[in-house]
Simulated scan of single mutants.
Amino acid sequence: MLRRLKLKRFIIVEGDSLNVISWLKGGVPPPLRFDAMFDEIDDLIAGSFIDINHLQRSANGEADSLARGGLFFSYFKELVGKEVTVELKNDLAIRGILHSVDQYLNIKLENTRVVDQDKYPHMMSVRNCFIRGSVVRYVQLPPDGVDTDILHDATRREARGG
């Protein structure tokens, strides 16, 4: 007899540290100094579907180069509090209020909803999410959030090398 699996949330974890990925998957126990932290993680994710993946460090190349340039980081900070749509490299598009962004263009969204709910029904219960910068394909900005003068100035500075 099949029972419907009731999950609290769907969580995707990606990292470039093989050790941490192994600890999270449970294949290798974490060092004792991290035991309490991993016990807390286990409690937080209980009842969730978790997809844990290892990424090669080279997969972070684009995000790292953008972060070093800082071109987009300062621009995205101006969009905090506005609605954006983030399209991921796996074709999932999530719309929400930009809560925060860091120098690696990792994005935290609140009040999220999936753009294509028929294709991703398991994501309908997700209301807040953290998106790693290296998995972002596009960020669609609100029309009133585009200040072309700032973008032109930043692009000119970047072209001059600083």
Rank of each mutant, 00 (worst) to 15 (best):
R4L: 13
K6C: 10
L7E: 09
R9P: 01
V13I: 13
V13G: 01
G15W: 00
L18I: 05
V20M: 02
V20Y: 01
S22V: 01
S22H: 08
W23I: 05
K25P: 02
K25T: 06
M37R: 10
F38K: 04
D39Y: 08
I41H: 02
G47S: 10
S48Q: 13
F49L: 06
D51E: 08
L55V: 03
G61W: 15
G61Y: 13
G61F: 11
D64F: 07
D64P: 00
A67D: 01
A67V: 04
R68L: 06
G69C: 12
K77R: 15
V80R: 15
K82G: 08
E83I: 07
V84T: 02
L88E: 01
K89Y: 04
A93M: 05
I94F: 05
H99A: 14
V101H: 00
V101T: 06
Q103G: 10
I107K: 00
D116M: 13
D118K: 08
D118Y: 08
D118E: 15
D118P: 05
Y120V: 00
Y120D: 04
N128G: 12
F130I: 07
V135A: 06
Q140V: 09
D144L: 07
T148K: 07
I150G: 11
A154R: 09
R156C: 11
G161S: 14
